[in-house]
Computed example of a mutant assay.
Amino acid sequence: MLTSLPNLLTLSRIALIPVILALLWFPATWTAWTAAGLFALAGITDYFDGYLARAWHEESIIGRFLDPIADKLLVAAVLFLLVADHKIAGHAVLPAVIILLREVMVSGLREFLAGLRVGVPVSRLAKWKTAIQLMAIGWLIVGDHGPDWLYVRPIGEIGLWAAAVLTLITGWDYLRAGLRHMLAPAGASVQVEPAAKAPAAAPVRTGA
Rank of each mutant, 00 (worst) to 15 (best):
I155Q: 01
W139A: 15
K87C: 15
A162H: 09
R176E: 10
G178I: 05
L81N: 07
E103C: 01
V192K: 01
L81D: 11
A188P: 03
V97A: 03
M105D: 13
Y174G: 08
I98W: 04
G119W: 06
D173V: 12
A201V: 05
L183M: 12
I88M: 00
L140M: 10
L74G: 13
G138I: 01
A202E: 10
L166I: 14
K129A: 14
A114I: 01
W139M: 15
A186N: 05
K129R: 07
S123R: 08
D148Y: 03
A201Y: 07
R117W: 08
F112M: 03
L116T: 02
G115H: 06
A186V: 08
V106G: 02
I88Q: 00
T170I: 14
A70E: 13
A92N: 05
P199C: 06
S123W: 06
R180L: 15
G119I: 13
G178M: 11
G115P: 09
V106P: 02
L74F: 14
A186T: 06
L113R: 08
Y151G: 14
R124Q: 13
G156T: 01
L100N: 05
V78L: 13
L101T: 05
H145G: 11
V122A: 13
L160C: 05
V142H: 06
I169T: 06
D144I: 02
P154S: 01
A198G: 11
H181S: 08
K72G: 15
A70D: 10
A195M: 10
V142L: 14
L66S: 09
W172G: 01
A114L: 06
R117D: 13
V190G: 01
V192P: 01
H181G: 10
D85P: 02
I98M: 08
L94H: 07
I137E: 15
P203M: 11
A186G: 10
F65Y: 12
V120M: 04
M135T: 15
L81F: 07
V122W: 10
